[in-house]
Each structure stands twice: as C-alpha cells, then as structure tokens.
Simulated assay, not measured.
Amino acid sequence: MTDDDDTDELPTREISAELSRGLEDLLLGQAPTLTRSDVIEQSGVDDAVAVALWHLLGFPNVADDAVAFTPMDVEALRQSDELIRLGVVSAESQAALVRTLARSFARLAEWQTRLLAEIRVRNDATDAEHLALVAAALPNIEAFQNYVWRRHLASAAASLMTSEASAAEGDRTAIGFVDIVGYTSQSKKLDQRELIDWIESFEAAVTGVVVDHGGQVIKTIGDEALFVTAEARDAAEIALLLTARGQDPDDDFPAVRAGIAYGNVVPRLGDVFGPTVNIASRLTSVARPGTVVADRGVHDLLCRDHAPEGVRADDLTLRRIPHVSVKGYGKFDCWVVRRAKS
C-alpha cells in the first residue's frame, strides 16, 4: 500500500442480502406485501396523486407488479389526503411540503445509517447483533425525533404569534452568513473522517453562538452557515463573536468572514428568501478574513441613536466602504463592523 492509499476512510463492511432484508422489514414494520396498484386501491387516493407523491419523496418508479409496499404506505397516502380534506394543506402546497420533508429526512436518514454502520464495524457485530441494536435503538430515535419536532413546532408557533402584525409586508429580519476562509485548500489536507469532524465542529460552534443570542440557524452548506435573528444588533454580535474566534490562534474554530443584512424576508418551509438574503450572501464574499460587513439596513439600526455618519454605535464602530459592486445589485454602500477600542 502506498502513502496515498493510507487514508483514514470511514469504516465500511459489506451488507449481506439477509441483513438488508431484515433492516427493510424492521424499518417498514413488516416485509413488503403490496404492489402499487394495491396501495392505490386500499388508500382510495387517485393514481396520479399517489405517483406524484412517491416522486416528491425522492423515490424512483416502481413497476406495477413489484411487491414493494406495506400497509404503512397505504396509511401515509390516506393521511396526506386527509390533511388536504381538513384544509391544513392545500393541494397546491402539498408538493412543496412533501418535497421539503423528503429532503430533510433523507439527509437525517443518511447520517443515522452511516452512524449505525460505523458502530457495526467498530463492534464487529454479526448480522443478528446489528439487527438487535437497530431494533432497540429505533423506538428511542423515533421518540426523540418526535420530541424535537414538537419543540420546534411550539417555538415556531410562539414566534409566529408575536410577528403576525408585520406578516402583510413580509418579516423584517436580520440575515447573517458565515463562511470558512480557505475551505477548499484546507479540506484537501484532511482525510474523510477529519473533514467530517471539522465540518461538524464548525456547525456545532455556529449553532451554539446563534442560539445563545436568540437566533436560528436556517441551514449549513458545507463551509457556510445561514442564520436569522429578529434584531440587527444580535446578528452583528453573532458575526463578531464567530470572526473573533476564527482569529484566535488558541481556538480550533476556523477563520471565517461574515455578511449581515436587515430587511424584508420571505420565510418558506424552513428556509428564507428575498433580496435581503441575497445581499447578505454577497456581502460575505466582499468581507475580508476575520471581518464582518453589513448593509445599510443594519447600519441604520445600529446607529439610529448615535453619530449621523455611523462612526460609532455603543461599543461598535462602523467604517463605510463606498460603492461596493455586488453582483445582481450594482454598486451600493456597506460597512465593516468592528468592536470599538476602549
């Protein structure tokens, strides 16, 4: 084996046909006994609707005579149809809801499966031992996921109740992007396990700081994290804390840069859209390593009770960068946000 081949890859081990069938039966509740036609007939849902939902879930076509389904699939179709009947989900929004659920759970399922596979290899478990572990863990995983979902649902409902007054114009929100500096070059130096650990450490650190300041991480995309806060000051504080950590030689957190903007945002299915999001993203590319760049919306809120030119806002200083060219938005002014020297 050459040095190039000697990498610390994630452990792998061939899955036997027996283990694969056992896992499928365990996770689906029983072995498949129904064809697509059986599911459609028993659920009472239109054929075209059933096929469309299956595609939206991210699964490929199944032959009409293939025995690939269980009563769980029948019940899922009935429940989906019932949500429309109750008026909870419109026929128009059903596709977006199913697609979003599918993307979220596909990512979660991939991570959970990989974790269990690592445990199987590490313990050198037999097929029977691995099935027993999954069977023991599954109810706890399912219950915990339900708890997390309900907690987030309660939090989102409470947040919505406090912001209904502004819903007609769209939510005015602070948007922040944090981007790892030199991600491509650094990732080439790491093996697969080290890269995953590095990214997970980055995500955990960002999430901790954001949540501690009343914000929410909307998503992470490899080397970048998108977060929202109700107040511009909170977004600035989060960005400054993270960039400071990245500049600390004694901190393992990577060097980062950040862009923050404030304005109308369109929330949809757990994501956010609109010009404010786009501007914050563009400002991240303008920022130098270890710096935070803000748009006029953030500047005006931070400085409204202070110097007209925005030279100082409490313990912050804002230095104007005139006529920055931002792709898709032409040239406009933005500001580098820093801690004020005592």
Rank of each mutant, 00 (worst) to 15 (best):
Gln145Gly: 11
Ser163Asp: 13
Ser187Met: 08
Lys189Asp: 13
Gln145Ala: 14
Leu153Asp: 10
Ser166Trp: 01
Met161Asn: 12
Gly182Cys: 08
Ile175Cys: 07
Thr173Ile: 11
Thr184Cys: 10
Asn146Ser: 14
Ser166Gln: 14
Ser155Gln: 13
Lys188Arg: 15
Asp191Gln: 07
Ile175Phe: 03
Ala157Gln: 12
Ile141Lys: 01
Leu160Phe: 14
Gly182Trp: 05
Gly182Phe: 09
Lys188Phe: 11
Thr173Tyr: 00
Ser155Phe: 03
Asn140Lys: 14
Phe144Val: 03
Asp197Thr: 13
Leu153Tyr: 15
Gly176Cys: 08
Leu160Ile: 08
Ala136Cys: 06
Ala135Gly: 04
Ser166Arg: 03
Leu153Pro: 00
Ile141Arg: 00
Ala174Ile: 01
Thr173Asn: 05
Ala167Lys: 06
Ala143Ile: 02
Ala156Glu: 13
Val134His: 00
Tyr147Ala: 01
Ala136Trp: 04
Ala143Arg: 14
Leu195Arg: 02
Ile199Ser: 03
Tyr183Thr: 04
Arg193Gly: 04
Glu142Met: 11
Ile196Gln: 08
Glu203Phe: 09
Ser163Tyr: 02
Val178Asn: 00
Asp171Ile: 15
Ser187Gly: 04
Gly170Ile: 01
Ala137Arg: 03
Lys189His: 09
Ala168Trp: 02
Pro139Arg: 06
Gly170Arg: 02
Met161Val: 15
Asp191Glu: 10
Lys188Cys: 13
Gly170Trp: 07
Gln192Val: 14
Leu195Gln: 01
Ser201Lys: 08
Leu153Phe: 13
Asp179Val: 03
Asp197Cys: 03
Gly170Tyr: 03
Ala156Lys: 09
Leu190Ala: 01
Tyr183Met: 06
Arg150His: 11
Arg151Phe: 14
Leu195Glu: 00
Ala137Cys: 08
Ile180Arg: 01
Ala168Asp: 06
Ser166Val: 12
Ile180Tyr: 02
Gln186Ile: 12
Trp149Phe: 15
Leu190Met: 15
Ala157Lys: 05
Glu169Gly: 13
Ala143Pro: 02
Arg151Gln: 15
Ala154His: 15
Glu169Val: 09
Leu133Pro: 01
Ser155Glu: 14
Ile175Asp: 00
Thr162Cys: 03
Glu142Thr: 12
Lys188Val: 08
Gly182Thr: 07
Gln192Gly: 04
Ala168Tyr: 07
Ala137Asp: 04
Ala168Ile: 14
Ala157Cys: 05
Gly182Asn: 06
Phe144Cys: 03
Thr184Gln: 04
Phe144Tyr: 09
Ala136Asn: 04
Tyr147His: 10
